[in-house]
């Protein structure tokens, strides 16, 4: 695609709006010579301040209203004693919704289970995906890298529900894994994989692994092979080269990959319903429960969502800071 303005880019911009070889002005020519357009642009372009205000107005309103608004309203509702407001009743300020989180173990348990699940699965994904990303970035020819990446991206584009369903078929009592084990004579009765912590973890890793691969791959791909070669010339063994050269240089990828996977796995809702069982209830299910029942439970749900959001953001923020300080540390 050519990006340089075509020779006739000045069509109609030239005085009179006439173009070479044609007397009819183009759309842009007519537009820029129209009275109202001129009046508006003359006014706007008269000062850079006006231009800036006009350009910035929509983005500022949009991010404040559409991006920040829902979160602020959620936090506000979490302090109200009833919402959506009943007719003729003004909701009062209360801390009860927040307090109820700390009172009941049926709320605290799923909360910590979610954190434990997400943290350990993030770590497991990192350990699993690092060699994959390394192999792809360092041992595959440039031309093939794109092809292999594209191949891995296809399952990634398919949504949460379809991929969760695929896992259900794989791990079910009459699923492929049980069939293979049975044919091999290793088991007599199917192993109940489904609706356990195992099936849920398997599914979550399946959903999130690509979010780990992409940042790791792009970090590893940027490291020049000469760095490790130089280290080898200086007598560093394979392990030392990895620990002193490759790992420190891929920290940025580790940081963004882990943050992505952690935030996504805390926010999954359909997957724990479909793959998990009663002993693996996650906090997203607890939160959603408040919105399926009568409206007066909404504030509690809002408070719990806020607790989850703050915890997730503080944890990932701290983690990124920590990695950031590590990246800067050894170079000094």
């Amino acid at each position: 695609m050519s990006t340089t303005p075509k020779p006739d880019a000045a069509d109609g911009i030239a005085p009179g709006g006439a173009t070479r070889g044609s007397d009819r002005p183009t759309f842009w020519g007519r537009l820029t010579h129209a009275g109202p357009y001129r009046a508006v642009t003359d006014f706007v372009f008269a000062s850079t301040r006006r231009q800036f205000i006009l350009l910035a107005a929509l983005p500022i309103v949009w991010v404040l209203f559409a991006h920040l608004g829902p979160i602020l309203q959620m936090i506000r509702v979490s302090f109200l004693d009833s919402y959506p407001p009943a007719v003729g009743y003004t909701p009062q300020f209360t801390l009860d919704n927040w307090a109820s989180f700390f009172k009941e173990s049926i709320f605290i348990k799923p909360f910590f289970r979610t954190l434990m699940f997400s943290l350990s699965l993030t770590f497991a994904t990192l350990v699993l995906i690092y060699p994959v990303a390394y192999f792809l970035a360092r041992h595959v020819k440039r031309d093939n890298q794109m092809l292999l990446l594209l191949m891995l991206l296809i399952p990634f584009w398919v949504g949460e529900i379809v991929r969760t369903y695929a896992i259900m078929i794989l791990l079910g009592n009459t699923g492929a894994v049980n069939l293979i084990l049975k044919t091999l004579g290793l088991i007599d009765r199917p192993i109940p994989f489904m609706f356990t912590g195992f099936s849920l973890s398997f599914g979550i890793v399946y959903l999130t692994s690509l979010y780990m691969l992409m940042p790791l791959y792009s970090a590893l791909e940027k490291i020049p092979p000469t760095y490790t070669e130089a280290a080898a010339d200086l007598g560093a063994g394979a392990w030392t080269r990895f620990r002193r050269v490759t790992l420190p240089l891929s920290l940025e990828g580790i940081s963004s990959g882990c943050t992505l996977v952690f935030l996504i796995s805390t926010g999954l809702y359909a997957t724990p319903i479909l793959l998990g069982g009663p002993s693996t209830t996650l906090f997203s299910q607890t939160i959603a429960g408040f919105f399926h029942v009568a409206g007066d439970k909404w504030p509690t749900g809002a408070a719990f969502s806020t607790i989850m959001l703050l915890t997730a953001l503080i944890l990932s923020g701290t983690f990124m800071k920590l990695i950031g300080s590590l990246t800067r540390g050894p170079q000094k």
């Binding site: 983005p59 500022i60 991010v63 404040l64 991006h67 920040l68 608004g69 829902p70 979160i71 309203q73 959620m74 509702v77 919402y83 959506p84 943050t259 935030l263 996504i264 805390t266 926010g267 999954l268 809702y269 997203s284 939160i287 959603a288 919105f291 909404w298 749900g301 809002a302 969502s305 989850m308 959001l309 997730a312 953001l313 990932s316």
Partner: peptide, 27 residues
């Protein structure tokens, strides 16, 4: 600040994003 707010919806876990939109839609 504007950049941070722009990126905000991408880092909010799915369920919380859905809940906050549900409450905001009601408002």
């Amino acid at each position: 600040i504007i950049f941070g707010l722009t990126i905000l919806p991408a880092v909010i876990p799915g369920i919380i994003s859905a809940i906050s939109f549900r409450i905001f839609a009601n408002l």
